[in-house]
Design a protein around this nucleic acid. Sequence first.
DNA 1: CGATAACATAGAACATTGTTCGATGTTGCA
DNA 2: TGCAACATCGAACAATGTTCTATGTTATCG
Lengths: 238, 238
Amino acid sequence: MAPPEGPPAGRRRGGRPRASHSMDAVLSEAVALLDEAGEPALTFRALAERLGGGVASIYWYVASKDELLDRATDHVLEGVLGAIDRLARTDDPIADLRAVALTLFDAIVDRPWLGAYFMRSTGLQPWSLKMYDRLGQEVLRLGVLTPLQQFHAVSAVIGFVVGTAADLGQEPPREVVEGKVGRDEYLERYADQWRALDPAEYPFVTHIVEEFSGHDDAVQFRAGLDLLLAGLRLQAGL
Amino acid sequence: MAPPEGPPAGRRRGGRPRASHSMDAVLSEAVALLDEAGEPALTFRALAERLGGGVASIYWYVASKDELLDRATDHVLEGVLGAIDRLARTDDPIADLRAVALTLFDAIVDRPWLGAYFMRSTGLQPWSLKMYDRLGQEVLRLGVLTPLQQFHAVSAVIGFVVGTAADLGQEPPREVVEGKVGRDEYLERYADQWRALDPAEYPFVTHIVEEFSGHDDAVQFRAGLDLLLAGLRLQAGL
DNA sequence: CGATAACATAGAACATTGTTCGATGTTGCA
DNA sequence: TGCAACATCGAACAATGTTCTATGTTATCG
């Protein structure tokens, strides 16, 4: 607790500011850290070093690490919404809804940490709310549904996207992140364990293990999303 | 770095064991702490105090906090699977699949922390794998699907359940946990903010705000699940 | 019965983290 | 010129996960 010696004579508190940040710089560097090595890599000290400033300075922009994560999440979500705005629109609302969901999914797969914090900020953070509304706009175009059905449909899509993306985009072991072990090889380790299971006890897992082995996350996501959208189409009477 | 003074004369290291744990006691108390105040409440020191022992002792049972969380998650999942085994079975596989999913959902809503860690252990932890297989068994009974379609269907259901449950089951503010503020009142605060938005900018959110206000999480979940299952039913040609 | 190894416990120290305190510099404006 | 809002930062703090090392307990075997 106590320092090894008494207070050094030349201690100087405060001092001339040496770095000039900005909200945007803080968030960008925070996102960069998250991208490089996930949530544990985002520490105030690492962030301060990147910004070339002191640790306490960051607290001028955010009140806590939670807020930093919320804002960083919202920061990238703004970019995702930009990409969504650039999507071509058709006359089929469900096809467009699908395209929006796919874009959001891709963003979370690219940034595994996003999935974990996206949910937390749903409905609170500005861009998160925008995203929610953007999905809803497509459902609105369907026309025939009641507001309650519309509310349920959008919540279902969001839940599915986030749940699946967070599941698939789990932070893989270091080896895979650093490219030492291929993703296929990594999946194959699981598959081998599954193959060794007793089919009487695990009838399903042993039955589909060959499909699991070497599967494509994006294909799996689209298949599930299409099931959900087929149900929605049915409900809309199309 | 160095201690402030030399090693105290009377220091005694080690000592007579005073507590007798067991893997099960460790996990049960860990779950109890998680239930009471979520993940931040689960610290090795708090857990040690509950067990009436020392902090380091816990490391004889688990190698890290991550493993502790994984094992705690799997521990409660075992109970959930017990409840699922006791469900009545019908001759409609999709109805049974629905019942299993609902039971899993309820468990995650009861324990908001479960959602966050359930995903992490999918396919790794024993009971998590059992759960996956259990859902798959119902899909197997559908018969007509290809193994790839079956694989996709189960992954979709899991993704939806986990995503929605984690979203809905977000750790609410302290006030709500402690019952000082009713859940309805809490929702109403959101609703009020939404009502104040510009309908031109947020056409959907402002359109469904009255449905959101005072909504029932379980109803919302079932509605989404039924959309997904309707799509599955369609694919199975039923 | 005594030695031995596996089982189990624990105090203390450590490194790292989020956070706070207080002092100081900088800038726009009246 | 002075003052208030803006911005920066070193140092200390409290809490946490983890490791090191020493010790006690128990079952087994000769």
